[in-house]
Design a protein around this nucleic acid. Structure first.
Length: 352
DNA sequence: GCGGATCAC
DNA sequence: TATGGTGATCCGC
């Protein structure tokens, strides 16, 4: 397989630039982190609390101080669709990871007898021409390496890794570059004196399994350049959820219930768009101390009915009265155990 | 099956 | 010191 990973630098788009924060007096520009991170950083620096509530309250923010502009997700989606269109010119084997990243299996392509690198160049150029966005890409023999290679090529380059080069390339990488290695795993690995890909390569597979179970195995394989996972063009969604942070927190049960009703409606809409039925309702609550729980309940029958989702969510919340007393900072509902809705019955009746 | 933890974006 | 929203996966029970 010739895998390919493309990462588009969306924040460079002229129409998306305003998405983060416009700060009246702050010379600071995007620092390379995510939108919200940037916004939070500035919010913190200016002591106006966290960014999201501030963005919601954009009208009330004094003009001479900070102006928060909420991200324009519609625009994001629009540009993302353009990018995906270009990718699909090459092949339909596109596994989108997020709005601006995708794995592409270019073992076969629609355009003709071109090398993976030529196909990459083509997409990169076309994306730049049509959207003015730069993107980086990696070309190599599996997904994992392609992602690493693409990261290495940021913001507007390409990295090609041949099979015989993989071990050497990986040996030089810091462990935090490996997907799946976040804050916690990094700490543990460093405490074991494992800091680079080379260290991982020198650690026995068994040692990594003993310490990190499945993730250890995956990490061991990755560090040795092995990843057999296929590019999955059609991945089905496994859950749909809505959540929101409240600033100030909610202390009224009625207010919380109103939110639950709203979530239930929104989730139902998404279920209907995708013709899905939910089999389980999950409630998520966080109090003012940031203590967070989730509570779930399987449904007797899969549903698409907002009233049922609301009822379950409400029942779950009512068992957690203390949260209302202590103040709800975050409230969320999601549904899982999704199943494609069967048409036949409904069609039968709706046509009558 | 449930709930917490961790991770990616 | 203050910590957004959405979704996936793993692990222990």
């Amino acid at each position: 397989m010739d895998a390919f990973y493309a990462s588009v630098e969306m924040r460079d788009h002229p129409d998306l630039k305003e998405k983060a924060v416009v700060v009246a007096h702050d010379p600071r520009k995007h620092n390379g982190h995510g939108v919200i991170t940037t916004a939070n950083y500035v919010a913190r620096k200016y002591g106006v609390g966290s960014a999201m509530p501030a963005m919601r309250a954009v009208e009330q923010v004094p003009k001479d101080q900070l102006v928060f502009i909420p991200p324009n997700f519609e625009k994001y989606r629009q540009v993302s669709a353009q990018v995906h269109e270009i990718m699909h010119e090459v092949t339909d084997q596109v596994e989108s990871v997020s709005l601006d990243e995708a794995y592409i299996d270019v073992t076969q392509n629609k355009l003709g007898n071109y090398s993976s690198i030529e196909l990459g160049n083509y997409m990169q150029q076309k994306i730049f021409k049509t959207t003015k966005l730069t993107c980086s890409f990696g070309v190599t023999y599996n997904k994992f390496l392609a992602k690493m290679a693409s990261e290495y090529a940021k913001p507007f380059g390409k990295t090609v890794i041949l099979p015989e080069e993989a071990l050497n390339f990986l040996a030089k990488q810091d462990i935090k570059k490996f997907p799946g290695v976040g804050k916690k795993m990094q700490e543990t690995l460093r405490s074991m004196n494992i800091n680079t890909g080379e260290d991982l390569q020198k650690t026995s597979v068994q040692t990594l399994i003993d310490r990190f179970k499945k993730m250890g195995y995956v990490l061991a394989m990755h560090s040795r350049g092995i990843d057999l996972s296929p590019v999955q063009a059609e991945r089905q969604r496994k859950s749909i959820g809505k959540e929101r942070t409240f600033e100030p927190s909610i202390f009224e049960e009625q207010a919380a219930l109103t939110q639950l009703r709203k979530y239930s409606r929104e989730i139902t809409e998404m279920l209907k768009e995708r013709n899905l039925q939910a089999g389980c309702v999950v409630l998520k609550v966080r109090d003012t101390n940031f203590y967070t729980i989730t509570r779930r309940r399987m449904l007797k029958k899969k549903t698409q009915d907002p009233r049922i989702i609301y009822q379950e969510a409400r029942a779950l919340l009512e068992r957690e009265e203390d949260f209302v007393t202590r103040g709800i900072r975050l409230l969320g509902v999601s549904v899982t155990d999704l199943e494609q809705e069967i048409y036949e019955e409904t069609n039968l009746f709706s046509t009558l």
